[in-house]
């Protein structure tokens, strides 16, 4: 009976819960976009850049991958304030987790670039393409396709990490769970329901990416690559 009461309380707060879900989704997409926009150039720089560039990128990537997400959130939230710039918790969360994701994504793309045979680059160059053109027209289309499976892992891990933005006061799905849990005094049921929502968000995203992967597959490319 108590469980039903708790569920009814969650049902009554359905609009805030949906609103929290929206914030969680918005946070996830924004930080993935930042990660993608920064991660790709970082990966290209690491593989094709000269020694100085690739060293700088390695240091950046190691640093952001070694510091816990929660610490980064605090740094990005309190950091600007120290210099007199106030940014909203939401923006701080996007920046902190976005930069962090760019470090992880750069590793995904680097792996994909390195898995593509050197022959592709040489062939493109021998056809008279500049290095930049070869990267844009030959390497990147292959790399992006090949990165989808790992990228889908990154999606599901950052989605869950957005729950940490709670710590700096972002009103996301997790925060609403917290509020309802306090009101109903029944945290297990509330957090299980919130957990189910996270679970379906993960599932929806990874399913979509798997569909995309199949849709974009170049027929026969895998087999040709292993022979060549």
């Amino acid at each position: 009976m108590e469980i039903l009461e708790t569920l009814a309380a969650i049902g009554k707060s359905i609009i805030p819960v949906l609103r929290g879900t929206e914030i969680t989704v918005a946070l996830t997409f924004s930080l993935l976009a930042i990660g993608l926009m920064m991660g790709l150039p970082l990966a290209l720089g690491q593989v094709y850049g000269n020694k100085i560039i690739s060293t700088i990128i390695v240091v950046y990537e190691r640093t952001f991958r070694s510091i816990p997400a929660l610490v980064l959130l605090f740094l990005f939230y309190f950091g600007p304030a120290t210099f007199g710039i106030y940014i909203s918790p939401f923006l701080a969360a996007i920046l902190a987790l976005g930069f962090r994701s760019s470090a992880y994504q750069s590793q995904i793309f680097r792996g994909a670039i390195q898995s593509i045979g050197q022959g592709q680059m040489m062939a493109a160059r021998s056809l008279g393409m500049s290095k930049l053109k070869a990267i844009i027209y030959i390497i990147l289309p292959l790399v992006l396709r090949r990165s989808i499976p790992s990228w889908s892992n990154e999606y599901s891990s950052v989605l869950k990490d957005t729950a940490l933005a709670f710590a700096i006061g972002v009103i996301d799905l997790n925060r609403w769970g917290w509020r309802i849990a306090i009101r109903t005094q029944d945290p297990i049921i509330v957090f299980l329901v919130i957990g189910v929502i996270y679970f379906f968000l993960t599932l929806a995203g990874t399913r979509f990416l798997r569909w995309l992967e199949k849709e974009l597959k170049i027929p026969g490319f895998q087999s040709r690559d292993t022979i060549g």
Partner: peptide, 22 residues
């Protein structure tokens, strides 16, 4: 699937804040 599909923070909340009720 369950543990990998939900945030760690939520799991900690369930263990620390949820179980005392029982």
């Amino acid at each position: 699937d369950l543990f990998r599909g939900t945030p760690l923070l939520l799991q900690l909340f369930i263990v620390y804040y949820g179980l005392p009720r029982y």
